[in-house]
Amino acid sequence: MTTERVLRIEGLCARVGDTHILGGIDLEVRAGEVHAIMGPNGSGKSTLSHVLMGRSGYEVTAGSVTLDGTDLLGLAPWERAQAGLFLALQHPTEVPGVSLESMLVEAAVAGGRDPVGIRESLVVEAERIGFDEKFLDRPVNVDLSGGEKKRNEALQMSVIRPRYAVLDEIDSGLDVDALSAVARRVEDSTNETGLGVLVITHFSRLLEVLQPDRVHVLSHGRIHASGGPELAERLEAEGYTGILGEAADAPEVAVELSLGPDPFADPLA
């Protein structure tokens, strides 16, 4: 029996300190799919990405997350990464004194993978993504511009070859060329390795180059609307208030509001 290849989030609730931020997220990202999560500031987009990777300070109060059948919530962050989850951070951290290569080598060794080809893989992927090779020998993210840091996130994703990637505002700080290079690389991974993608973004601009299969609108810690790519276009035209209406201010009534087709329907069916 083969395991179903899906990143499944069910009823996920989480808080930071006493503040409840996620109020029951349900989402399924299948291998090769691109799902976009859009939402206004403070809707819980970044919290969702940190909760998925298990960052300390974010406490899950209910729900489950499984990656190809593996329960993620019981795992440490590095074990989630080894299980096949990748998180591209909105603000990639500068890590002085640690080289990109040594970081990826240690990650490979910990996962029982051969680290020998990592340097070569970095060079090939850097070229493909337009990441200047001279940055490969810098400490991780140190002295890189915002755009270079985002390219670096996409570069690492390509080398690590995760099963699912959460891209948290990967488009912020990127110029158009960089944006399309990164989007193309992500798109290619969905075809080449069946990467499943959860892309979190403010703007529909990214979704013009990285075509989503599904778009979800997050507000007040819940998904209030789901649909196809046309939902992103509507958001662009009408804004969040247009889509969410009163929901933007009154989440308790917004539960009923679901604009798209059933978000849990199997899109391949």
């Binding site: 990777m53 590095w78 990464a81 990748f86 640690v98 970081m103 240690e106 990650a107 910990a110 690492q156």
Partner: peptide, 18 residues
């Protein structure tokens, strides 16, 4: 920094060492 390395799959103690 520790979380960043962990999120790439580097075990905590090894990340600390790096």
């Amino acid at each position: 920094q520790l979380f960043y390395l962990e999120s790439r799959g580097v075990p905590t103690t090894i990340a600390e060492r790096l």
